[in-house]
Simulated assay, not measured.
Amino acid sequence: MRVDANSTERPGGEADEPGWDVDPDDESGAAVVATVGRQLRLRREAVGMRAADFGVAIGYGEDQVYKVEAGKRIPRQEYLDRADEVLGAGGLIAAMKKDVAEVRYPKKIRDLARMEAKAVEVAVYANHGIHGLLQTEGHARVLLETRQPAYSRNEVERGVAARIARRSIFDRSPAPALSFVQEEAALRRPIGGRMEWRRQLERLLEVGRLRNVSLQVMPLNCETHPGLDGGIEVLKFGDGTAVGRSEGAFNGRPVSDPKQLRILELRYGMIRAQALAPGESLAFIEQVLGET
């Protein structure tokens, strides 16, 4: 019996879900998935295998095979690996995993991850909760599960996977310069219960000790600072360009105009100056962890 991370287990090795539904509003992603599905169908028909037999061979139901081939569902990576093996494609189907991986997350998240992947500097002030790049998997899942209107199980899992995938920024070489300022209140909210709370604090300590990361805590006893009306995020790229956004400036829209970016950088600089120093911040997080 096989269990897929996003699947409902069924007898006989079949998985109810071989991937995520395609967002009809994501034209570029839908086009990629449709192309992959068409290639899978042509390969299957070329070897004379019926959809039902093919499904049994790779561990999925016939209906799910048809959905993938029709471009209605994004196949998971292991689906393509098994299809390549069963159809004797010699790696040609498995080679499509990279294209599929790039469109398996919502377009907005893909665009953000693409910018983060190119950034040489990232500056973040998170005012309400733990920033997405710093969240544990469990923390992210609880946040998505408590959204209203409620997300479907598929949307929750897709959102969690997208957030975890963004953490590859910490493994890049050369490493980008990453700066985070987190509000103390976010560290004290036990999202997911005591054990998950501890894991989240330990994750912050792990990231904060990286040589290319500056992690600071804005203490609650700081009466006022320039970030009270919204979080701030600024990404700088190797060609000298940059993009930034803040809920409290320019109607929350992303901006790239140098004059507008200077305003965000001014606010962020003042926030950093009022926050605890990085060393003090790590000591503070350790103190909170000891209190949990």
Score class of each variant (00 low, 15 high):
F170Q: 03
F170M: 02
D171G: 05
D171T: 13
D171F: 06
R172E: 03
R172S: 03
R172I: 01
R172G: 00
S173E: 15
S173V: 11
S173L: 10
S173W: 09
S173R: 10
P174Y: 09
P174W: 13
P174C: 14
P174E: 11
A175H: 02
A175K: 06
P176R: 02
P176F: 03
P176V: 11
A177Y: 01
A177L: 11
L178M: 13
L178D: 02
S179R: 07
F180A: 03
F180I: 02
F180P: 04
F180G: 10
V181E: 00
V181P: 00
V181S: 04
V181K: 02
V181M: 05
Q182M: 07
Q182P: 02
E183C: 10
E184R: 04
E184M: 06
E184T: 05
E184H: 05
A185T: 11
A185D: 04
A185L: 10
A186S: 12
L187H: 08
L187C: 09
R188K: 15
R188Q: 15
R189D: 10
R189K: 15
P190E: 14
I191T: 14
I191R: 02
I191K: 02
G192Y: 09
G192H: 05
G193E: 12
R194Q: 14
R194W: 07
R194P: 02
R194A: 15
M195T: 14
E196F: 06
E196V: 10
E196T: 10
W197R: 05
W197M: 08
W197E: 00
R198C: 12
R199P: 06
R199Y: 12
R199W: 08
R199V: 00
Q200Y: 09
Q200K: 04
E202K: 14
E202Q: 14
E202H: 13
E202R: 15
R203W: 08
R203S: 11
R203L: 08
L204R: 00
L204E: 01
L204V: 10
L204W: 06
L204S: 03
L205K: 06
E206W: 00
E206C: 00
E206D: 12
E206P: 02
V207R: 03
V207A: 10
V207M: 06
G208Y: 09
G208F: 01
G208D: 00
